[in-house]
Amino acid sequence: MPIRIADNLPARRTLEAEGVIVMGETEAARQDIRPLRIALLNLMPDKITTETQIARLLGATPLQIELTLVRLSGHVSKTTSAGHIAEFYRPFDEIQTERFDGLIITGAPVETMAYGEVTYWDELRRIFDWSQTHCHRLLTICWGAMAALHYFHGVPKHPLAAKAHGVFDHEVRASGSPWLRGMSDVVPVPVSRWSEVRSADLPAGLTVLLESEESGLCLVDDPARRALHMLNHLEYDTLTLDTEYRRDGSGPVPRHYYRNDDPANLPRNTWRTHGHQLFGNWINEVYQTTPFDLDDVGAVLQV
Rank of each mutant, 00 (worst) to 15 (best):
Y236D: 08
L228M: 11
D201I: 09
E27H: 12
I105S: 11
Y245T: 03
A147H: 11
E87V: 08
R125G: 10
L206G: 02
E213F: 07
S212I: 05
P254M: 05
L43F: 05
R30S: 10
Q96S: 12
L231E: 01
S192K: 00
E66G: 13
R225P: 07
V197Y: 07
P223G: 06
Q302C: 11
H75V: 05
L206I: 08
A174R: 15
D129W: 04
L234R: 09
L36I: 14
V208G: 04
W121C: 03
E51C: 14
W143G: 05
S177Y: 02
D122R: 13
K157N: 06
A204E: 15
Y89V: 07
F128W: 09
W121P: 01
A60T: 15
H274W: 01
M113D: 09
G275I: 04
R268D: 10
G19D: 03
G144M: 11
I141V: 13
A299G: 15
A164E: 06
F88D: 10
E196V: 11
Y89P: 04
H134W: 12
I54A: 01
N269A: 13
R125I: 00
Q288Y: 12
L72M: 10
E196D: 14
F168G: 11
R226H: 13
T97E: 14
F128N: 03
R225K: 14
A174D: 15
A174G: 06
H153G: 06
A299K: 14
